[in-house]
Design a protein around this nucleic acid. Structure first.
Length: 289
DNA sequence: ATACAGGCTCGCC
DNA sequence: GGCGAGCCTGTA
């Protein structure tokens, strides 16, 4: 099977896949295998080129380019970040990191399972859900599975979802997939809404609060202003921007982020987040300090 | 072993 | 309308 090539300047594949946006890609040979929608794909980076192939007839360079947002004007986006020490450091550390475009349901469902979980756990849950309920997609002898449709999960039971190690998240994922498969919510139709309304609608779904809604807006609706604040980002904001304050309300943090980071706040957030995660010694991280 | 995670929700004030 | 506690599980 032949490789096809995709031009990918200003892109770091490994960095992007390790930045807490998506949780199912796995190393394979010199690259990674994963599923984009229903399609198993192999992607390998060689400098400014991606070599891609899929498990069926031919790779779709366009699909890969779209998924990894290779059309985002990354230099411009980074240039629009506020010019402060924290941001400069994060920007240098995350060169080539892109916000990817994920399928809406897959992204929503995955982030519903993410609460109070570390990346390793989220990956396990994603794998379990895919293996148990997803469509199979073969490549390279790896057994990959697409993320199951809402319809499929809606037919399962809380017990079956718990068997995928979801714990209390099972109830939320089941309820949300039922609302979607009944047509009470149309994720594609929500794309027409302005940011605030979209966030409000996402937050009506069980298991979705402001943090998850912002992740879904950023990773699946191309809302590059969306600024998810989790414990890592909260810590960075407090330490770097409010060093003398002990605590700020969620509202104050949100208002500050919106005005300070502006139109590409989501990118800024992702850079701050990834930099903090990768440079903070494990022992000193979040709660123990 | 045992604390504790990339959070949501509900009940209390 | 802010604050704290409980929720499940795997990992360090």
């Amino acid at each position: 099977m032949k490789f096809l090539e995709v031009a990918a300047p200003d892109f770091d594949l490994a960095l992007t896949l390790d930045s807490g946006q998506t949780f199912h890609w796995e190393p394979s040979g010199a690259g990674f295998v994963g599923v984009i929608g229903e399609r198993a794909v192999y992607v390998e980076q060689r400098g400014e080129v991606l070599k891609v192939r899929d498990g069926e007839t031919r790779a779709l360079p366009g699909l890969v380019a779209r998924y990894f947002s290779l059309d985002h004007p990354l230099a411009e986006i980074c240039a629009s970040f506020p010019d402060d020490p924290a941001m400069r450091e994060a920007r240098a550390f995350c060169h080539g990191l892109r916000i990817i475009r994920q399928p809406r349901w897959e992204c929503l469902a995955t982030f519903i399972t993410s609460s109070m979980k570390q990346v390793a756990h989220i990956r396990q849950m994603s794998r379990a859900l895919r293996q148990r309920f997803g469509r199979r997609a073969l490549i390279h002898g790896s057994h990959l599975y697409a993320f199951p449709e809402a319809r499929r999960l809606a037919q399962s039971t809380e017990e079956e979802l718990r068997a995928c190690a979801l714990g209390y998240r099972a109830k939320n994922l089941l309820a949300t997939s039922q609302r979607i498969s009944r047509g009470e919510v149309d994720l594609d139709a929500l794309a027409e809404l302005p940011d605030d309304e979209l966030r409000a609608r996402l937050c009506t779904m069980p298991g979705v609060g402001a943090k998850v809604a912002n992740c879904v807006m950023l990773f699946a609706y191309e809302r590059l202003r969306a600024f998810p604040i989790d414990v890592w980002v909260e810590r960075v904001l407090m330490e770097k921007y409010f060093p003398r304050r002990r605590k700020l309300t969620a509202r104050k943090l949100r208002d500050f982020s919106a005005q300070h980071f502006g139109d590409h706040g989501g990118y800024a957030q992702q850079y701050l987040f990834h930099h903090a995660r990768k440079t903070t010694p494990r022992r000193l991280s979040p709660r123990t300090r």
